[in-house]
Computed example of a mutant assay.
Amino acid sequence: MQKHESALFRITFAGIEAAPAVAAALEVFRANYGVDFVTYHLARTVIGAVDAPFVRTTYPDPWVSRYLMRDYAEVDPVLHEGLVRQLPFDWREVDVPEAAHEFYADAQAYGLGENGFSIPIVTKSRRALFSLNSRKPDAEWSTIVSERRSEWVELAFLIHEKAVVERYGEHDPIPVLGGREVECLHWSALGKDAKDIAAVLGLSDHTVRSYLKSARFKLGCATVSAATARAAQLRLINPYGNTHT
């Protein structure tokens, strides 16, 4: 926990830890902090729908049904931004494309607020998004976010840990790679050989080869090229962006 956490943070932290499931944990968070709606989205880990996304929300059932029926995930700019960003962001920072205007109008018609705050959760093995939605006016919402954002980030990661256990239990299919293993695979995916990677990272060729070998074993792959492909498929690396997805 934080050194100077508020009493509200301590109460919420304990409530989330004690909650029997993620849905109950979200309700604890929503009630304690007085936000209108809370959503947790654990991204699918394998491209191609081998592993379906895990989503829990306090949004009203009619809106959830509407969202799914109209396939709004395809145009939801907050979801799209949240699954590629690294840092928390206010929804007012997000550019709204014309294709999403109908989506936003529909959301407000179902009682959702115009303001929100999202926290991307990026670990060595997973990506998730924790989002808050509020009907409070801009100035009031800005003040609340400024006061609470550091607490919310810590609580988001606590909920994420609970979600991974709830979703996978003791059979989590995603291997946990070390930071250097991820970096070496990332540069390998960009076409670098061990010598090139060693120069980029300031390591010896032997050390780089060791990291690539251990990553191969963790991913169950016979070759480095297969390991980089597998790591990209599992979203452990992003060959088109920075080293940590």
Rank of each mutant, 00 (worst) to 15 (best):
E147C: 05
R148T: 11
S150V: 15
V153H: 05
V153T: 10
L155P: 09
A156M: 13
A156H: 12
A156I: 12
A156F: 13
F157R: 11
H160W: 11
K162R: 14
K162I: 01
V164R: 08
V164H: 07
V164F: 09
V164I: 13
V165A: 13
R167S: 08
Y168T: 03
G169D: 15
P173E: 15
I174P: 04
V176H: 08
L177H: 07
G179S: 04
G179P: 03
E183C: 05
E183T: 06
C184L: 05
H186L: 01
W187T: 03
G191T: 12
K192L: 07
K195V: 15
D196N: 04
A198Q: 08
A199F: 14
V200A: 00
L201S: 01
L201D: 00
L203C: 02
H206D: 09
V208N: 00
R209I: 10
R209G: 05
Y211S: 02
K213I: 05
S214F: 03
S214L: 07
S214M: 05
A215L: 02
R216H: 05
R216S: 14
K218L: 11
K218D: 11
L219P: 04
L219M: 09
A222V: 14
A226C: 12
A226L: 15
T228Q: 05
A229E: 13
R230T: 09
A232P: 08
L234R: 06
R235S: 12
L236A: 04
L236K: 07
I237V: 11
P239H: 08
P239M: 03
Y240S: 02
Y240H: 09
G241D: 14
G241T: 12
G241C: 09
G241Q: 12
T243I: 12
T243W: 14
T243E: 04
